[in-house]
Design a protein around this nucleic acid. Structure first.
Lengths: 135, 135
DNA sequence: CGGTATCCGGAGCGATACTG
DNA sequence: CAGTATCGCTCCGGATACCG
């Protein structure tokens, strides 16, 4: 039926737009680095290879589930490599790939920006939060 | 009391670590730019000032709630400015501040990285997803 | 040691209806 | 035109217990 309500049309537009966004490389990358644990793992591994248990200790408070999930998706994307040494007990090492190291450079850039403009953002916040003549 | 289970100790560690992370400027910034709508709004405004309805049309599929919420938090952080012209009907313009423009430069850097390494990531994904001798 | 499997709660998004 | 108020629902992430 030709009777497509405005709401339906809008919902379709939204769906298409979502698909478009998901296909966007920049958005994919933002989804990636925005993940709380991703940045921590990458930062931890920037100092050198680590074992699973090293990471879970270093990152303090990550559940095994999230750590594994994060490591797997980063491995999938070629950000880090996973090396299993079949000794007893098993030993697994994680290490940044060249791609991962270039990502960590990007995160460094983000970090620099954040530190540079930290004060400015907080001044803006204080101005916004309390610039009405309160008490 | 000394009777604190391992689970309790871990939970406390997690809470402290979370607090630590929330205080971290880099993390705050990541939370900011990682937001789906934030990047879209900043990108839209990078081309010049826009009105509320312009943004909601340009961004296609954002609900008024999310758009307002996003604009308010960006205004609070000094990323953009909100100018009300008290005509009838009311007119509200949004525009990036200098701080906002420097943020958009950072987003451009992210975009460049994403586009540069897009293929590499996708090759890694295909390798990971299908490197067993399927078919 | 290095994970997997499962359940669960709650933060937050989206849709809708309404207002100055 | 530029929002605010409300509500249902999903999905993410944490805790826990167990396997190779």
């Amino acid at each position: 039926m030709a009777t497509m309500t405005a709401a339906q049309r809008r919902e379709q537009a939204r769906t298409e737009y979502d698909a478009f966004l998901r296909a966007c490389p920049t958005n994919q990358l933002l989804d990636r680095i925005s993940d709380k644990w991703v940045s921590l793992v990458v930062a931890a591994l920037a100092a050198g290879p680590m074992r699973y248990s090293d990471l879970s200790r270093k990152i303090a408070g990550v559940s095994p589930k999230m750590l594994t999930q994060t490591l797997r998706s980063l491995e999938r994307d070629g950000i880090l490599s996973r090396t299993v040494t079949p000794s007893v007990p098993v030993r697994v090492d994680y290490e940044l790939t060249p791609l991962g190291r270039s990502l960590s450079l990007l995160l460094t850039a983000v970090k620099d920006w954040a530190e540079t403009h930290f004060d400015e953002v907080h001044r803006a916040r204080r101005r916004y939060d309390g610039d009405d003549g309160q008490k």
